[in-house]
Design a protein around this nucleic acid. Structure first.
Lengths: 150, 150
DNA sequence: CATATTTTGTTGTAATTGCAACAAAAATTT
DNA sequence: AAATTTTTGTTGCAATTACAACAAAATATG
C-alpha cells in the first residue's frame, strides 16, 4: 500500500512554516492563524471545540487563545446559560486580519494544486476529507488513553 | 476552488499526535520518530538534508539529532573527505526501533485509507506527491526570505 | 435527588521549535 | 589564486507545545 502519511506530514509542515512567516507581518505569532480563522468563522465557539477542530491539545488551545486575547484579536465572553464555558469572538482587530489569512490560504491552495487536473483535485479533496474522518476517530481515542493494537 | 490545506493540516497534526503518544513506549520523545526513520533509511545523511526532507528548520533538526545521539539512537561520524559535514548513522538501538515505526505507520496508513477505493487511493497518493513538490518549492523560497505576492 | 461521570477550564513543568547571529569549511566567481 | 558566496554547523534566546494534575460546573446514572 502506498504511503500517504509522510507526504501529508511534509506538506503540512511546509505550509505551516510558510504561513507562520507570512503572518508575522500581521503580528500573529506561530500558530495563531489556525485559531483566529476558525474563531472568525465560528464566532461564539469555545476552547474545547477549537482544540478538537484544529487537532491540538486542549491546553495548547487554551494558551493560544489566551495570547490572542491578550493581544486583542479576540475576546472571551461569559455565557448567560452556562457558567462553565466562555464563548470566543473576534474583535474588530481580529476580524480585520481574516481576509488576509484567507488570501494567503487561497494562494497556497492554488500553488498546491498546480499541475493537477480539475478531476484529480476534486478526487483529492474528497479523499482527504475521508482520510481526516478516519484519522480523527483514532486521534480522539488515542488521546483519551486507548491503545491501538497492530 | 476546494480547500485542501486545512484537511491536510488537521490530518497531519492528528497523525503526529498519535505517533508521539505511541512512540513514547519506545523512549522516543516528541518528533524524534520523524528523524529516526529517515536516518535508518538514509544512513550517512547529514543534518541539513534531514531538515530539507522533513521540512523543519535547520536548527530544530540539529537539536533533534543531538538528542537522538545523546540517547544512543544514532551516531555522528566525521567524513573523511569533508571536514564540515558529519554523517549520521543509526546505532543498533536505533535500528531496532525502525520496524516498530514502520508498523505504526502502516497501521495508520491503512486506517487513513479506509473507505477509499484502490483507484481513489492511488490518485490520492500521486496527487499528494505533486502537491508536496509544488509546496516545497515555495517553502524553500520563503524560508530564504523571498516574499510571495498575492 | 443524590451520586458518579463527563465536560470545560486552569496552572505548573519540561520539552521541542525556530529565529538571529555567529563561525568555519567548501564551492563558486572574478 | 584571491575574493565572494554558499553550505553546514552551532549557540543563545523566546516562544509554543503538551502532559499531569487539579478544580468546578454540567450532565448522566442509579
Amino acid at each position: 500500500m502506498k504511503d500517504i502519511l509522510r507526504e501529508i506530514g511534509m506538506i503540512a509542515r511546509a505550509l505551516d512554516s510558510i504561513s507562520n512567516i507570512e503572518f508575522k507581518a500581521h503580528d500573529l505569532t506561530k500558530g495563531q492563524y489556525l485559531y483566529l480563522v476558525r474563531i472568525c468563522e465560528n464566532p461564539g465557539i469555545i476552547q474545547e471545540k477549537l482544540a478538537e477542530m484544529i487537532k491540538v491539545d486542549r491546553t495548547s488551545a487554551a494558551r493560544a487563545v489566551e495570547k490572542l486575547e491578550k493581544n486583542n484579536f479576540i475576546v472571551k465572553e461569559a455565557d448567560p446559560d452556562n457558567k462553565k464555558i466562555r464563548r470566543i469572538f473576534p474583535t474588530d482587530k481580529g476580524s480585520e486580519i481574516y481576509p488576509f489569512i484567507i488570501k494567503e490560504h487561497e494562494y497556497s491552495n492554488q500553488i498546491a494544486l498546480q499541475g493537477l487536473s480539475d478531476q484529480e483535485a476534486e478526487i483529492l479533496a474528497v479523499a482527504l476529507e475521508k482520510v481526516r474522518n478516519n484519522i480523527e476517530k483514532d486521534w480522539e481515542s488515542v488521546k483519551k488513553g486507548h491503545k491501538r493494537v497492530y
